[in-house]
Design a protein around this nucleic acid. Structure first.
Lengths: 336, 336
DNA sequence: CTGTTAGCGCATTCAG
DNA sequence: CTGAATGCGCTAACAG
């Protein structure tokens, strides 16, 4: 049985209140302070956070909801978030929605039941209607990476349209005219990136035929299959923009398997810099999200909402710029 | 403010005890039952688990400690575990040790502070000494995937030595004589798999020269670099056993980049079947761990330890067999 | 089967 | 600055 505040009361002869005050950073006479500290040491006392939570109405827990914990992106996010929260003494409750809208709704309720002090979410639902219970319970929610189409919450991520625009521009600048895209048209980020691709093409006066737009839910398989299809076309593209990490990985694998190589046979620029890109040669051009910054910003916003429990004023949206990192996977088509 | 048991007392005129009993599945007169259910409905009442936890001395939380949350393996494990625990109404507190022994020790204490009811762990430490605080607090711990070299806890995983032995045997049966291994010699699983490789070679009377054993900490890079080195040898191996998912992925990428292909140029058999292998062709032979079974077994063991709070009797170790799944990545060397 | 009475471990009024 | 008293929301004996 762990020691309680009562044990240290008996040991020091002080009252519960004094000890409690000390524990919460209040002023206590030096000699009492010493007394308490000694007792804590001896008894290996540690505050029972769940008891404290009952009275302060805080659990020192936050919930993190991810659309798919098996995705590479989630792992990275979770890494940074758990690090940030640990520093602040918060526990991180994880919920996996495995890309299922219904499950996500239940997860939210589950977390609310657990009395989390706040929620960080990488949502699968495009609509934010299901988040209402959190708002009603005035549990702050911060969105990461993806936002809703119909409701506003605090958000931290990148400007996806712009990132894609800039990535595709890199191909255009290198005089590519036949540029394809592999991305999602059913997820928030994918849709924005698709738009970025289309804008860039349009603005450069280049055609963006449907056969060059391979869409579906972001996945390794989408990248793999689409890349093979693109390269098998009668009139294949010379450059391909891959819309996220999974598709990038799949696309790379496909090119390799076909015995082709970049930038000689095909130019590519991918998205999201996780493990693989560190090691693949020739190095691949990448639109890189600042994961660490995104997470620490999201945590910062969440924490301030938790602390000032004032009603949500107006949602804040933070968009970082993606870094377009240089590689050797784009060939200049004019130097032919 | 959410409704409390008191609100429903006022609304029904019943006593707290009766309501509490109903909530905990006790017998209540049908008419009272109806009364309570109505009130619950109206008031949107939900039990405050943290208050309940204070008296029952349970948090309905378990902790999961992983050596590296960014590894593919962790994501898969977390997926299954969170699913199993949700079914049981438990929250999952996640801790990432990012392969740091010191961090892992702190994580354990952190979880204990959060009063988790049990811990599932994929440890980074080889020694189990740091788990003592959990044992002292009689918080059950179940190890997954990796075990300690110096202390015993409940464990669920596979027989790594045997899995590796069988994987390498697949190459031997196909008349390979020059067989290499890429795996870890500093992690529990890697060491056992290395042993399996060596036994298989020894037993078949085949040499296992050092140049064919590429060792280090399991990583994508290890697989990538090692495979390139192996294939650049004067006398390269004809078959390679890749010791885990990351190294498998790295090895595949290396073969592809060299413009080689399996099974013509090199025969390979990998480990752990996650996303990529579903999509790479020709299909790769794989030693596959039954992730779902492992996790549900681990959860089952943990739950029973939590429920029967009797002192730990004797640790139980469950080893599943890995499935050696057929592919087309091994060439029969006699058919030359 | 139901109601009354005590706490769980702690923070927080209020006096002193 | 300190101490005694009160209650957070709920469960667990007991009586009735």
């Amino acid at each position: 049985m762990p020691a309680t505040i009562r044990d240290i009361k008996n040991r020091t002869g002080l009252s519960l209140a004094t000890i409690s005050k000390y524990l919460n950073g209040g002023n206590v006479l030096p000699k009492n302070k010493k007394l308490i500290e000694e007792a804590i040491e001896e008894l290996h006392y540690e505050v029972n956070e769940i008891a404290r939570g009952l009275v302060t109405n805080q659990s020192k827990l936050i919930g993190v909801m991810v659309y798919d914990i098996e995705s590479f992106f989630s792992g990275s996010i979770l890494h940074y978030i758990s690090y940030e929260m640990r520093k602040r003494g918060y526990g991180v409750l994880i919920c996996d929605s495995y890309n299922n809208e219904e499950v996500e709704k239940q997860n939210l309720k589950f977390l609310l039941n657990k009395k989390v002090d706040g929620i960080l979410m990488l949502p699968v639902n495009l609509s934010g209607a299901f988040v209402r219970p959190a708002r009603e319970a005035s549990v702050p929610v911060v969105l990461i990476d993806r936002s809703f189409t119909d409701d506003e919450y605090d958000f931290v991520g990148i400007d996806n349209r712009m990132a894609a625009f800039r990535a595709v521009s890199r191909l255009i600048e290198n005089h590519h005219r036949k540029i394809a895209v592999i991305t999602s048209d059913v997820e928030y980020t994918g849709m924005a990136r698709l738009e970025g691709y289309r804008s860039a093409m349009y603005q450069a006066g280049l055609p963006a035929p449907e056969k060059y737009q391979r869409l579906g839910r972001h996945s390794f398989e989408l990248g793999y299959v689409s890349m093979k299809q693109l390269l098998a076309l009668d009139d294949p593209p010379t450059g391909v923009f891959l819309g996220n990490y999974e598709t990038t990985l799949g696309g790379i694998m496909a090119v390799n398997e076909l015995g082709l190589s970049w930038p000689e046979d095909i130019s590519i620029i991918g998205f999201d810099d996780l493990i693989v890109s560190k090691v693949v040669r020739p190095k691949i051009w990448m639109a890189v999200q600042p994961m660490g910054e995104i997470c620490s910003k999201a945590v910062e916003i969440l924490m301030s909402s938790i602390e000032e429990k004032k009603e949500q004023i107006t949602p804040v949206k933070v968009h970082f710029g993606a870094l377009i990192r240089e590689g050797s996977s784009i060939r200049d088509m004019e130097e032919t």
